[in-house]
Structure formats: structure tokens, C-alpha cells
Design a protein around this nucleic acid. Structure first.
Length: 525
RNA sequence: GGCCCGUUCGUCUAGGGGUUAGGACGCAAGAUUUUCAUUCUUGUAGCAGGGGUUCGAAUCCCCUACGGGCUACCA
């Protein structure tokens, strides 16, 4: 007899998607400000799934709330994705067969779907004004209860279910404003399989009759989102965990429309490194690190928030660190290029719990990328920074500086902090080093060194100078450490920097002598 | 308050019935570096608690605690 294993894994968390053709995913931000890093990560995970499966990544702008329009936000979102190397296949500027890709441009579409729900008896008109609702809510609150607009209460409210048809017609005719609400079924259990969390259930009697269509003629997020995802043939809805509570509503909407629903995957949140709660836009960079990919200037308050780009992060490092927040490859590899990420990515390896963001680890990632990058490439990126400092040099020279210093730098601008002396004479002398290293008799000693170097005939290369210099110091019976530190103080202005003879070779004999002379004259004993 | 989701070193995480509970960041010590930084080596530190199930539980179940999210004519 042959035994066949039964299917014991009833909830395959692994992606059904992997074998599925034509994966279509979307990132659907609301242009109410700059995208923050959590949003970028959501976009990234969507993009990665599309890239892995050869699917399509769509950028859809969800601007159904006209009161929250922020100028520049839409451009910011697109620029941020571009900087990260997240390529949009279909979107506002890319176009595509499922457009328009901005919900305000799709406005005319939604009314008919709301009507469809009205006709099928799954939605109704509600005439309660915001003031009415607020009053009811506060009444419930004083009773210590929470008002929920649903099967239990809707008969007491002013809507097309509680009012007679003639009254309703009259209200409409008189121009009374109304919204369209979803008629949430009473006491049903809605269950759906989340790709990350497995089976999740909700009882509809605890849910409310969400507004689907606002009195201003725009749909709410819920309606627009479901309609667009359907029309755009989205296969996977990958979004933040904050949307998990609205999953039953969305599932129900697909059901009532009799549409095939996409697969849902709710990503864990990125939490603040310290304190409580999810990382929010309002955190700005008050916590010592940026929360935005790009610098953002608030168009209303002119308040500036720093961005990873401007802080000196490399886009590939930023993407890498974001990917490792909540996802892991199951191996010990931590450094991934975008292609490698797409290759390795799998929603089943996304964790369930929120991750506190660790700025220190973020720096470590950038340092890794700095080491990995080509010196010429880094030098090119450094040129604008040098120009800002008023330095004029050849790129070749900068390449050499980068080669010597990148190991000790985490961010590109640090190369300047670590190596300004390659480009200009020290403007000041670190007082601590001066008091420690510039003692009685040192200026006289440096003068002898000056004379030695001034008359030096050998080749001006690090190794040769070092050898002859050492011989000279030994002959003079000077303390080597004392000499070198004083020498360094003259050349660099502080007790820091690359190998001293390398520096001398780079800046040349003339500058070396000049700096020694300046030191002798200007450093106080 | 209600609903939903979660909980392995300080942080990010591996591990999904039998492991000395693995890695990374950070931190500490040592080595190298004439300084600083880098680098290398070593070390540090964890299964939230309580009940089950089982020969055996970090792993499966329940309860509690804690954390988080949502609870708008915002997304």
C-alpha cells in the first residue's frame, strides 16, 4: 500500500502569488504631505513583489479629500520613489491602460458604483449633518457608550432606511445634502486570509455603516480604493497594518459588487525608536534622524524637515535598510542590491510585529555602502560639496583622498570633515592637541625639521620621505611620538587624519613647508 | 471603552515540538594603528507571565499582562 501524505498545511502563508501570472500591485499614497519612510517601505515591498514576479507596479494618487490638498506633495512622492530606484510602471506621468491614475481625475467614475450598491440594497442615503452626528456621539459618550452607526442605530437616524420614500424624495428635491453609507450586515462573521497574518475574522455587528460617498460629490477612500483596485485589476493589496480594521469592509464591498477580490497583505508598522507609537510624519526629524526620504519644506509653515538624501545617505543603502525592517531573507545576508532584493523577496518572510527603527543600524548600512562604492564614483559625488567649500581641485586628486578616507566615513560629507587638510591649510589649531603636544622646545625642533625637509633632495613620496625622516629623527635622538604629533599639528591642525607622510606627499613639498612655518609662527607654546 | 493585530538579547531578527536558542547593530575588552577613525578577535545580553497538551514546548492551545493599530462626510 502506498501512503500519500495528507495536506497538513491548511494555511499556506507562502505566496500563492509566486505562481500566479500578471501580478499587479499598487502603491496608493494620499498627497497630504511628504511620504515618510514607512510609506516608502510599503511602496518598496509592492515594487519588489512586482519585480520578482515580472508584474506591474502602479502608482495611484488617492486625493479624494480635497480639504487636505498639499501643494508639492504629489511631486515629492514621485521624486522620492525615483530617488529610491523604485520604478513606476503605470502612473500619472508614465500613463498606462488603466488611467487616469489620480482619483480626483476619476471622480465621474465613482457615482455609478455607489448607485449600484444603492440599487442592490447594500447602501443607503443618509441625511444626518456632521453636527447631528457629533451631537449623537457626545450624547452616547456622556452615557459612557460609543455610538456606532449600524444596524442597531440606523433606524433612529435620518436616512433612506428610516424615512419614507416620499420624505426622502422631498429632502433630495429640496437640495438637502446627503452621503451614501454602506449597509453593514448585522451579525455576520467576515473572514479573510491575510498573506502575512493568516486568517483574520471580524463580526460585522461591531462594524459601522461607513460613508462611501461624501456630500461633496467625492467618494471616500473605501469606495474609491475598492473600485479602483478592481478596475485596475490589482491582484495584491499590500498596505500598512493601519488598514487591517477596514479589511472586512473592503472584503464585503467586493462581495456585494460581485467582484473577485485581491489578496491582502498588511505590513507591520515602523515604530519610533524611542517612546511609543508608530513613526509619524509629525515626528519630523525631531528625534535626531530624518523620517523623510527627501528634504521637505512645508508650503504653509515653511518648516523644513530633513531627508535621507540630504543627510548623505545613498539611495541603495536607504532602500536596503528599509527592506530589512520587517522582512528578512532567512539567511544571514544583510546587504542587498535592489535586484538581489527582488530576487529574494517573499511576503511570507515579512514579520507580523512592528519594528522600532534603529538610526544606528541605518548608519551602519550607509557605511557598508560607502566601502563598497567605487572611489571615482564617490569622488564625483564629493565634487559639489568641495565646490561649496570654495575648493578647486582635479577629480583625480579627490579620488585619492576618497581612497584614503572612505574607510573612516559613514557619510560622504564626512570626507570633508576627515580630510579638509588635503585641500586647505589648517585655519586653526585644536587647543587640546596644542596644550598636549606643543611643549617647550618644540618650535625649535620643528624649525630643524623644516630645514631638513627644505633641503631634502629625495623623491617626495610617502615611503621614501618616511624612511629618511625617520633616520633623521633617530640621529637627532628625538622622541618619535613627540615629533610626529607636533608635525601633524602643523600640517593638519589637530590630532587626526590619514597617515602623515601620505598627506605630505599629497599636498606637496611646498605646502608642507609652508604649513610647518605657519605652525612655528602661530601655535602658542 | 470596543474591535483587531502583535510579543525571542537594549534594537533588528533566525529558529515553527528534542538547538550549547544563531546572526547583525550597539556596548565592553583585547589586538593592530606613533594619535584619531577603520579593521580583526573575544565578550555582553533574550524566548513577557501563568496554566495546559506532550516523554519533551521558545515552538501547539487557553488565560493574563504589556505593546501597537483602528474606532471621521481623513487617507
Amino acid at each position: 500500500m502506498i501512503w500519500v501524505n495528507d495536506v497538513k498545511d491548511n494555511y499556506p502563508k507562502s505566496n500563492i502569488s509566486m505562481n500566479q501570472q500578471n501580478v499587479r500591485v499598487r502603491f496608493a499614497p494620499s498627497p497630504t504631505g511628504p511620504l515618510h519612510m514607512g510609506g516608502v517601505r510599503t511602496a518598496l515591498f509592492n515594487y519588489l513583489l512586482a519585480k520578482k514576479t515580472g508584474g506591474t507596479f502602479i502608482l495611484r494618487i488617492e486625493d479624494t479629500d480635497q480639504t487636505r490638498f498639499v501643494p508639492g506633495a504629489e511631486d515629492y512622492i514621485m521624486e522620492a520613489l525615483k530617488w529610491c530606484g523604485i520604478q513606476v510602471d503605470e502612473g500619472i506621468v508614465e500613463g498606462g491602460p488603466y488611467g487616469p491614475y489620480r482619483q480626483s481625475d476619476r471622480k465621474a467614475l465613482y457615482q455609478q458604483y455607489a448607485s449600484q450598491l444603492l440599487e442592490s440594497g447594500n447602501a443607503y442615503l443618509a441625511f444626518d449633518s456632521p453636527e447631528d452626528l457629533e451631537q449623537v456621539r457626545s450624547e452616547y459618550e456622556t452615557k459612557g457608550e460609543t455610538f456606532t452607526y449600524n444596524a442597531a442605530t440606523r433606524q433612529q437616524m435620518r436616512n433612506s432606511l428610516s424615512l419614507s420614500k416620499s420624505v426622502v424624495d422631498q429632502l433630495i428635491a429640496s437640495g438637502e445634502k446627503y452621503v451614501i453609507r454602506f449597509k453593514m450586515p448585522d451579525d455576520e462573521v467576515v473572514t479573510d486570509n491575510d498573506l502575512i497574518r493568516g486568517s483574520v475574522s471580524f463580526n460585522t455587528s461591531l462594524l459601522d455603516d461607513k460613508v462611501l460617498f461624501k456630500s461633496d460629490g467625492m467618494p471616500t477612500y473605501h469606495l474609491a480604493n475598492v473600485v479602483d483596485d478592481h478596475l485596475m485589476e490589482i491582484t495584491h493589496v499590500i498596505r500598512g497594518e493601519e488598514w487591517l480594521p477596514s479589511m472586512p469592509l473592503h472584503v464585503l464591498l467586493y462581495e456585494k459588487f460581485e467582484w473577485e477580490k485581491p489578496v491582502f497583505a498588511h505590513l507591520p508598522l515602523i515604530l519610533k525608536p524611542v517612546g511609543k507609537g508608530k513613526l509619524s510624519k509629525r515626528d519630523g526629524d525631531k528625534m535626531g534622524f530624518p523620517v523623510f526620504p527627501l528634504r521637505w519644506t512645508d508650503p504653509f509653515t515653511s518648516e523644513v524637515s530633513s531627508g535621507y538624501r540630504e543627510e548623505g545617505y545613498f539611495p541603495d543603502a536607504f532602500v536596503n535598510l528599509l527592506a530589512m525592517l520587517g522582512w528578512n531573507p532567512g539567511t544571514e545576508q544583510e546587504i542587498f542590491s535592489m535586484d538581489e532584493l527582488a530576487e529574494a523577496f517573499d511576503l511570507s518572510r515579512v514579520g507580523k510585529s512592528g519594528s522600532k527603527f534603529d538610526p544606528e543600524k541605518a548608519k551602519w548600512f550607509n557605511h557598508q555602502y560607502m566601502q563598497q562604492k567605487d572611489n571615482a564614483e564617490l569622488a564625483e559625488m564629493l565634487m559639489p560639496i568641495l565646490h561649496e567649500k570654495g575648493v578647486k581641485v582635479e577629480v583625480d586628486y579627490v579620488v585619492k583622498v576618497v581612497e584614503m578616507l572612505k574607510e573612516r566615513a559613514t557619510f560622504l560629507p564626512e570626507i570633508w570633515d576627515q580630510g579638509f587638510y588635503f585641500f586647505e591649510d589648517p585655519k586653526s589649531y585644536d587647543p587640546k592637541t596644542v596644550s598636549k603636544r606643543w611643549k617647550e622646545g618644540v618650535p625649535e625642533m620643528m624649525q630643524e625639521i623644516y630645514d631638513f625637509l627644505a633641503s631634502y633632495q629625495g623623491a617626495w613620496s610617502p615611503a621614501i620621505v618616511k624612511e629618511d625622516f625617520s633616520a633623521f629623527v633617530t640621529k637627532k635622538q628625538w622622541n618619535f611620538g613627540l615629533v610626529m604629533n607636533a608635525f601633524r599639528l602643523c600640517i593638519v591642525g589637530a590630532a587626526m587624519g590619514a597617515d602623515l607622510f601620505e598627506i605630505c606627499a599629497m599636498i606637496g613639498k611646498e605646502a608642507t613647508l609652508r604649513r610647518i612655518q605657519n605652525g612655528i609662527q602661530n601655535i602658542p607654546v
